[in-house]
C-alpha cells in the first residue's frame, strides 16, 4: 500500500488518445502505462537526524500500523497530511520523497490524537514537530508562520516570564508581514466593544502599554537564554550544519 502510494503518481500515469505500437492500438485508459522511476538518493542518516531533534527521539519504535494517520485531525481536513507515511519515508531514508510534502508538515495542530492512539509510544506529534524543525534547519523550507509564532511567544516568555497576548499577536503579524486590520479581526473587536464597559477597555489598553512581567525573573531569563543557545548549537552539530 505504502509502496504504491510513493511510486505511482498521477504524473507517472501515461495514457494516449491515439497510439499504435507495432500495429496494436493502445489508445485510451485500457492500456495505461506507468512510467518507471528509480530512487537512488537515500539519506541513511535521515532517521538519526530526526531522532536528534526534540520530539523525534522515539521514531525507531514505529511499526507502521497507521493508528496515527487514522486518528489525525489534520488528515481529516487534508488527506495528504499523512504522519504514518512520513515516518516510513524517514525510516527508509527517502529524503526526496519526504521533500514532496515539505510545505504541509508544519501544519500539525498538536491535538495529540496520534500520541493517544499510538500502540508503540512513538509520540508522532513530536516526530511531526521534529520533522518540521529539520526541514527548516536544513533550509528546505522557510520558517513557517507557526514557527514564527512560537519564536515570538518564546522570546517574550523568556524575556519577561509572562506573555501579554496583544503584544504576541501584534509581534506575530509584524514579523510575518500581515496587516493587523483584517476584516474578521476588526469585526470581532467591534462585537466585543459593543458590550464592554469603558473601565475595562481602559484596563485592557493599560495592559498593552505596561507589559505584565514576573517578579524576580532576571536569573531565570539568563539561565534559559544560555540553555536555549546550548541546545541550538547541539542540534546544528547533530545535523552537520556547522
Amino acid at each position: 500500500m505504502i509502496h504504491e502510494k510513493s511510486l505511482i503518481r498521477p504524473e507517472n500515469l501515461k495514457t494516449h488518445d491515439k497510439l499504435v505500437i507495432d500495429g496494436v492500438d493502445v489508445s485510451g485508459h485500457w492500456s495505461t502505462f506507468i512510467q518507471s522511476r528509480v530512487v537512488t538518493d537515500y539519506n541513511e542518516a535521515l532517521q538519526d537526524e530526526i531522532a536528534a531533534l526534540p520530539g523525534g527521539e522515539h521514531i525507531h519504535r514505529c511499526w507502521q500500523c497507521g493508528s496515527c494517520t487514522n486518528a489525525c485531525t489534520v488528515n481529516a481536513v487534508n488527506p495528504d497530511f499523512n504522519p504514518r507515511f512520513w515516518i516510513y519515508l524517514i525510516r527508509m531514508g527517502m529524503e526526496s520523497e519526504l521533500l514532496r510534502d515539505k510545505d504541509i508538515i508544519w501544519q500539525c495542530v498538536s491535538c495529540n490524537k496520534c500520541t493517544y492512539a499510538c500502540p508503540r509510544d512513538v509520540f508522532p506529534e513530536g516526530v511531526m514537530k521534529a520533522t518540521a524543525h529539520w526541514l527548516q534547519l536544513k533550509g528546505h523550507t522557510p520558517k513557517s508562520k507557526s514557527t514564527i509564532f512560537d519564536e515570538v511567544f518564546a522570546e517574550q516568555v523568556i524575556a519577561t516570564g509572562k506573555i501579554e497576548e496583544g503584544r504576541t499577536i501584534r509581534g506575530f503579524f509584524a514579523r510575518t508581514g500581515q496587516p493587523l486590520m483584517q476584516d474578521w479581526l476588526v469585526e470581532m473587536a467591534k462585537r466585543v466593544a459593543r458590550r464592554l464597559p469603558f473601565k475595562q477597555g481602559i484596563a485592557m489598553a493599560l495592559a498593552a502599554v505596561f507589559r505584565p512581567r514576573t517578579r524576580k525573573w532576571s536569573k531565570a531569563r539568563a539561565a534559559l537564554t544560555e540553555y536555549v543557545h546550548e541546545q541550538e548549537t547541539r542540534q546544528r552539530k547533530a545535523l552537520n550544519l556547522e
Binding site: P54, G161, K162, Y227
Partner: peptide
C-alpha cells in the same frame, strides 16, 4: 506568587525542556 507562563503550546516547539522548567517553577 510571582508565577510565570507555563510555556503554553508554543515553547515546547522551541525546546520541550524549557517548557518543563517553566511549569516546574
Amino acid at each position: 506568587k510571582d508565577w510565570n507562563c507555563c510555556g503554553a503550546m508554543e515553547v515546547k516547539n522551541i525546546d520541550p525542556k524549557v517548557q518543563t522548567y517553566l511549569s516546574s517553577r
